[in-house]
């Protein structure tokens, strides 16, 4: 099916869970077109002209927010950024109250990031417009998984049958959860690797292979996907120290050598150089990290356009 005829059958994008393989592939195909647009001098489409997009970020984010902002603008939407400082106000109250207030302004699409899992679902039930999850707690980050899939597909020509090792803090990672579901839906073999304290209970029930030895996890891998480890988890609460973490789970040349010779390295950013990834690997020839950022804009354009096609026109 051509990307221009693609119909996305959902009103919101709250997670990868619940999407079918054709849903995902349709978004990726549409994103390929958006890549071409983004590489032109004239980077404008009009599919969202007249539409209002609100970026509602309850959690600080530079790259995701600017990526959504650019995506909306390239499609011709009016984009408003609302960064809600999550300090003094009681967070949940603000969430619903803010949702009601914003809803009254008649936006067409709201992009939401929130530190609590399920917050975006809650908000989606309170508003009349389309809602896109830009990350909710440790639950899902669907556009990250889509951009990762697009990046892999463009570089490997396929996703089916590839071995993808996701390494690091799985327990607290929404990126990991969305990627597991997305990559499995597209036929990849997913491996997870991390210290036992950062592997969530029951994760093997996803049908993945679980490792604590990174060298074994990387053996024969086509893709090595690193996750960010938050600073507050490095000092004895989950892992003893940065040094010990890097020793066992930091991606350096030596560990990367266990993967296939043409293995590619990914990271959702922002990176902690020297914690989960060595600088020479992050900047090396096998790294796709910068391309991921470019694909991020394209995938978000595709998501916005797909949702906009379903918006009422009167």
């Amino acid at each position: 099916m051509s990307a221009s005829a693609f119909v996305f059958p959902h009103r919101h994008l709250l997670g990868i869970e619940g999407l079918s393989r054709p849903d995902i592939e349709g978004l990726l195909n549409l994103a390929e077109e958006e890549v071409e647009i983004s590489r032109q001098v004239e980077k404008k489409k009009s599919s969202l002209r007249g539409r209002t997009q609100i970026n509602l970020f309850f959690e600080a984010s530079t790259r995701t927010q600017s990526s959504f902002e650019l995506a909306g603008k390239r499609l011709g939407a009016d984009v408003m950024n609302m960064s809600v400082a999550n300090s003094s106000v009681k967070k949940g109250e603000t969430l619903i109250d803010t949702a009601m207030t914003l809803n009254a302004m008649r936006p067409d699409i709201i992009i939401v990031r929130h530190h609590a899992a399920g917050a975006v679902h809650l908000l989606a039930r309170k508003v009349d417009c389309s809602v896109v999850n830009a990350g909710d707690g440790a639950h899902e980050h669907p556009t990250q998984a889509l951009l990762d899939a697009l990046t892999i597909r463009r570089n490997k020509g396929r996703i089916e049958g590839l071995v993808v090792a996701i390494c690091g803090d799985i327990a607290h990672s929404r990126v990991a959860r969305s990627n597991i579901i997305c990559l499995q839906a597209l036929g990849a073999r997913v491996r997870l690797c991390g210290p036992p304290t950062l592997l969530p209970m029951g994760v093997e029930r996803y049908g993945v292979e679980v490792f604590t030895d990174m060298r074994r996890a990387l053996e024969g891998a086509d893709i090595v996907m690193m996750l960010r480890l938050q600073r507050e988890r490095m000092n004895g609460s989950y892992v003893p120290s940065v040094q010990e973490y890097f020793h066992y789970y930091g991606l350096d040349r030596e560990k990367l050598a266990y993967a296939k010779a043409d293995a590619l390295v990914m990271h959702p950013g922002p990176m902690n150089r020297g914690v989960e990834i060595a600088s020479d690997v992050a900047d090396g020839a096998q790294s796709l990290i910068r391309e991921q950022v470019e694909m991020g804009v394209a995938v978000r354009m595709a998501v916005l356009e797909a949702l906009a096609r379903r918006l009422p026109n009167e």
Binding site: A117, G118, V203, R205
Partner: peptide
Amino acid sequence: NEGEFATRLGLPGIP
């Protein structure tokens, strides 16, 4: 409750 469903929902579990 800690386990598969908590993991799927991204919620911290109670063992």
